[in-house]
Design a protein around this nucleic acid. Structure first.
Length: 321
DNA sequence: TTTATTGT
């Protein structure tokens, strides 16, 4: 397997090889993968993504006054944008919150999102002098119960950046869109120099550049807590927690990207990067992994509603008809 | 260009 070889070239990718090995051994079970998903009753209820069929879906949309005449149109505008973002299915349904331009599922136990979902186009990423990142502020997400909420004090002097999952640079249509990405529910503790400010940023830019190739780009981003073999030969999941709220420091982060071609074919790429210093000269290709390996490690199913028969390529490799 | 923290 090509990606396996590539990963072993990257010394900091500890743990990823393990899940890929698992994937390789279980490969025969994948033949039943799609069949299994089709029979999974939840997917039948998700034919209209974005509709507030779950109480939490619209939790981040401020609805304070039932008599607000604007509410109807504002809600429907928001709902249609959420439908567009979530067109290919929800990876999971734990504590889903929708913002104006991205959707997030929150992990209360780790105080970090399970996943965030974004939809990118060239137009939406174009230069906009009305939107100013320096005016944005990191703010705690008041819609999350204080027991499970991360605070700025948790990150302060922790040694980690408040790293965006949905990147600020992906939301330049409106100042409010960008401001919403600064909600701490969209943050994870990330190694700053060498990761967030370097190779992870490089990956985010690469994903933005895919809008030059595909008219629509869908991207799902999240943390991983991967097991590692320790001295006794057993596997353990080990991660630091920071601050009084014990915000988990993920061992790795993933991005699953789908681009839609002009003739309605889809191409998928999956990346896993360790939350560690990575040299700027390491090619992004080295971090490509089979999407299934991320699904198994994260407990999520990505692009569940997108028929695998419409997938033309995975990680740049054509899929056999 | 975008990604950010610390200290004054």
């Amino acid at each position: 397997m090509k990606s396996m070889r590539l990963l072993t070239n990257c010394t900091v990718a500890a743990g990823v090889g393990g899940i890929i090995g698992w994937f390789a051994r279980k490969n025969s079970e994948l033949d039943n993968h799609e069949k299994h998903i089709d029979s999974f009753p939840l997917s039948k209820h998700l034919t209209k993504p974005g509709l507030p069929i779950f109480a939490t879906v619209s939790a981040a949309v401020p609805i304070t006054n039932n008599e607000d005449k604007d509410m109807g149109s504002k809600l429907s505008t928001n709902t249609s944008r959420i439908s567009q973002i979530m067109k290919h299915g929800f990876p999971g349904l734990d504590n889903v919150r929708s913002f104006d331009d991205f959707v997030l599922s929150y992990d209360r136990r780790n105080r970090v999102a399970h996943w965030v979902f974004e939809h990118l186009t060239k137009e939406r990423l174009s230069y906009n002098d009305k939107v100013d990142r320096s005016k944005c502020e990191f703010t705690a997400d008041q819609s999350i119960h204080p027991f499970f909420r991360s605070e700025n004090t948790d990150y302060k002097r922790s040694g980690y950046d408040r790293g965006h999952l949905a990147a600020a640079g992906n939301h330049k249509m409106e100042q409010t869109h960008m401001q919403q990405t600064f909600m701490l529910s969209n943050m994870a503790p990330q190694v700053g120099a060498g990761f967030n400010r370097d190779s992870w940023n490089r990956l985010e830019k690469y994903v933005r550049d895919l809008t030059k190739v595909y008219k629509d780009v869908y991207v799902c981003t999240g943390p991983l807590y991967l097991p590692k073999v320790e001295a006794d030969g057993k596997k353990y999941v080990r991660y630091e927690v920071i601050g009084s709220n014990h915000v988990a420091v993920p061992t790795h982060f993933y991005k699953i990207v789908v681009g839609e071609t002009a003739d309605s074919k889809y191409e998928m790429q999956a990346f896993v990067m360790p939350n560690a210093v990575i040299g700027n000269d390491v090619p992004l290709q080295n971090f490509m992994v089979p999407p299934e390996s991320v699904e198994r490690a994260a407990g999520l199913l990505f692009f569940d509603k997108l028929s695998r028969s419409k997938l033309n390529k995975i990680n740049g490799k054509s899929i056999k008809g």
